[in-house]
Design a protein around this nucleic acid. Structure first.
Lengths: 195, 195
DNA sequence: GTTAAATCTTAACCTACATCAACTTCTCCA
DNA sequence: TGGAGAAGTTGATGTAGGTTAAGATTTAAC
């Protein structure tokens, strides 16, 4: 029997949105989680590392970004509380990744190792269902963002971002949102002043 | 007992890349598939439809695209032989979709209905594993394309496309590749002449 | 096999967004 | 709590890629 402290109730609720777990299954799962604190501007992973965990954010916020050949950063994703984050490419291939995952503020995560994740798939097949659904939703979001990038102006992408992530607008630095949307901080500032 | 004709060997090999099926499981699966031919310029799905099937291409080539408010088409994906295609957003939500899926040439597909796909997950859980891996790979490709869109010039994106899909370069009309890369056919033509 | 339609190319001009630079305002931690 | 560095702003100028239009070439359907 285990005492369920706060971080676990959050992740168990996250999972309960898609699958039902028995108390035993919950125990198996939570025993696999490894908590970790990442200070502001510290990294969970840097580019070139092999990604060995999926991270679930219980406090704070992460951002995943790449750096191009001109040393410009491009934000691939944010992970606020209740979101999952990983360098998917590296996690599934176990080759050196391309993402830098940095804490934007003091952040707490629960780490699930790739090994434990695979064990879970075998011992509790429902988890394979859960992660399939999770990844499907990510894919749909990623495809929508691709389409937006191809068909909308920067201003429309900004408006979409405001609608889709109203809470993030107030917590994220503007330059990070600019990078996510695909414009420079300068142009982002001009866009905002035009309203 | 069923006679395995050509189209089924292709899809069974596609699946065998990730999971092993017993002859019985193969039979259950192939019995669920519904073959269909789509003539050149005909549609498997149009925008506003609810997507009820995943399609596996056994001959020809599909393209999935959206149309923006200026009536300009944007290619989200191609599906040549041995690839899967669907409007993922609509398929998982069962709401009206945004994709038009058109045959670029006479195309044959095997359709797996959403209902059968879910039955399969229950009866043969390995299929949940298979589709999870398939979707994971799609997600990684989609994320890489997002990063490329944020960090590369049109010319670099074109070079990447040539490297990643060397066979498609010769079979697809230039205007479709231009659309996928995110440039106009005119600019695409200029890029090509600069070499 | 012909022909109409679709695709591709080239050129002149245009615009959304980038770059550079200088300044102002935040913010965080010593 | 003050000050140094980060973040945001504003203006002048540059450019990758878009638009329009017209002609050349390919393609496919009858």
């Amino acid at each position: 029997m285990r005492f369920l402290h706060m971080p676990h109730t959050l992740i168990l609720n996250n999972i309960a949105k898609h699958i039902h777990l028995t108390p035993d299954e919950q125990a198996v799962f939570t025993a696999m989680l490894q908590p970790r604190t990442i200070k502001r501007k510290q990294f969970l992973l840097t580019d070139g590392d092999i990604c060995k965990h999926s991270a679930f954010v219980t406090q704070g916020c992460l951002r995943g970004y790449t750096v191009d050949k001109n040393a410009i950063e491009h934000v691939l994703s944010f992970a606020p509380v209740d979101w999952w984050m990983a360098d998917m490419y590296s996690l599934i291939s176990q080759k050196p990744g391309i993402l830098n995952i940095e804490a934007l503020e003091e952040t707490q995560v629960l780490l699930l190792s790739k090994h434990n994740q695979e064990t879970l798939y075998k011992q509790v097949p429902k988890f394979e269902h859960f992660f399939r659904v999770l990844i499907e939703n990510s894919l749909v979001a990623s495809q929508q963002r691709l389409i937006d990038g191809l068909s909308l102006t920067a201003e429309d992408r900004y408006n979409n971002f405001c609608k889709r992530y109203p809470t993030l607008i107030n917590t994220l630095p503007h330059k990070q949102i600019a990078s996510y949307i695909g414009v420079t901080p300068e142009f982002f500032s001009r866009m905002r002043s035009r309203k």
